[in-house]
Amino acid sequence: MKRLKVLVFVLCLVPLIWLLFDLFFGRLSANPINDITQRTGIWTLRLLMLTLTVTPMRWLTGWSSLVRFRRMLGLFAFFYATLHFLTYLVIDQFFDWDQIVKDVAKRPFITVGFASFILLIPLAVTSTKKMIRRLGGKRWQRLHRLVYAIGIGGVIHYLWLVKADTSRPLSYGALLALLLGFRLWVSVKQRRRRPTVSTPTTEPLAD
């Protein structure tokens, strides 16, 4: 398990290494800042989707120790989201606060993206064992359901920024609908069977 975790950790770093490689070897387009923004953004969304896949995969495969990867994947989603945000703040706008405030207030796709990033922060901060204990499993779980809203926000952010080709954001939307729909379906089924018992989504974090 330990080795597998190291492997997943390294795999999660590959998109960053790949991006740095392309950057330093001049393999990005004529507008590299835009490429960095896009690549860190898409990997944020991919890691969010992977994080949200862990629980349904556990139910489907019965491999319950999969949950041990959930925190790492979630933190990597936050890592790429932070890179994405910093690219916008530092490289793209270069601390043009006036412009940034206007963007966040007036551009719906930036408003949604920014809100989703802000919502990720408490989840990252409370990801430690200590914080889970301090909050208590139930409250922790409730807080961490925010990730559903963040996933929806991420897809909307992507959908609203594209110009002509909505096929990719829509396919992420379809995947997200599947992942969230599956949870809903299981929860409804469980509630019908055992009306008083909690749904699987409220299981405390094993790792």
Partner: peptide, 13 residues
């Protein structure tokens, strides 16, 4: 969806 006040000339930071 975006401001037109500024632009990035390709090749410039």
């Amino acid at each position: 969806r975006w401001s037109q006040a500024k632009e990035r000339r390709l090749g410039e930071f």
